[in-house]
């Protein structure tokens, strides 16, 4: 008892105590190293999506639709018999509804930076100059956009996302930690999508719409980034699936 080292901060450190503390500091440093490594290693793989800055400004020519969210439809070609669909966003957490509505149904040239995740593509439109009437509408001559095919009423489980972050603007661009960012994107006008996972593990991104085919962001904002179930009409527009739902059918899982 009487030989126990007694520490007084403004006096010298007893030698026996210094040795003990050196061990404690070593243990704490080691704990920090283990925790850092385990946390980094334990993270989910949030996909390899991202801005394709290396490709520079890209331009695509197609038909633009403003509702429910701005989408560029590219006509069918040999590799894409159903055509291609490219969601559009503005710079940052903004949409391009205003300019897309002005050009609704017309041939346009869309210029901007491509975001790509697996087979999904999106374009961040470079300001008002990034969405203009097509300089050469020949590639879409005689084509007014994809036919609409009704697939029936379905109930699906998945997660509501902002399409831009899902395509890789943020990684992770989904999940609860990203909910705040997702809501900001959606409030700004970025297209709202519903991510579903098939039994084989592959994913499908559905464009959301209300029963009338218009935007539905405000009604579903509280359910973004959560596992939910929705019921509605599914329709196909080219290679795009549009999920027209009544917000009253939403159910948290």
């Amino acid at each position: 008892m009487s030989k126990r080292p007694f520490f007084v901060g403004y006096l010298g450190m007893p030698r026996a105590l210094a040795m003990f503390l050196a061990v404690v500091v070593g243990v704490l440093l080691g704990t920090g190293a283990v925790v850092a490594t385990v946390i980094v290693e334990g993270q989910r793989d949030w996909g390899d999506g991202g801005f394709q800055w290396g490709e520079g400004q890209q331009t695509r020519t197609g038909i633009v639709m403003a509702d429910p969210y701005p989408i560029l439809f590219l006509p069918p070609d040999a590799d894409h018999p159903f055509g291609r669909t490219i969601p559009l966003s503005g710079v940052g957490k903004t949409g391009v509804q205003k300019i897309a509505r002005e050009m609704q149904g017309k041939p346009v040239d869309v210029s901007g930076v491509v975001l790509r995740r697996d087979d999904f593509e999106m374009i961040q439109v470079s300001g008002n100059e990034g969405l203009v009437a097509a300089a050469d509408p020949a590639p879409v001559a005689g084509w007014t956009g994809p036919d609409i095919e009704t697939l029936g009423r379905v109930t699906l489980k998945g997660e509501l996302l902002d399409s831009k972050c899902f395509h890789g603007a943020m990684r992770p661009g989904q999940g609860k930690t990203h909910k705040l960012c997702a809501n900001l994107c959606l409030i700004g006008g970025v297209p709202l999508t519903f991510l579903i996972r098939r039994a084989d593990g592959s994913v499908e991104s559905l464009l959301m719409a209300d029963p009338a085919g218009m935007e539905i962001t405000g009604a579903l904002l509280d359910y973004v980034s959560q596992a939910i179930e929705l019921t509605g009409e599914l329709e196909r527009r080219g290679d795009l699936l549009v999920f027209k739902v009544d917000p009253g059918t939403v159910r948290r899982l």
Binding site: E41, D45, W46
Partner: peptide
């Protein structure tokens, strides 16, 4: 620690 993984799984800011 990110280098210990086979591929980065998360963005730098995150």
């Amino acid at each position: 620690a990110p280098g210990l993984l086979e591929s980065p799984v998360i963005g730098g800011a995150e």
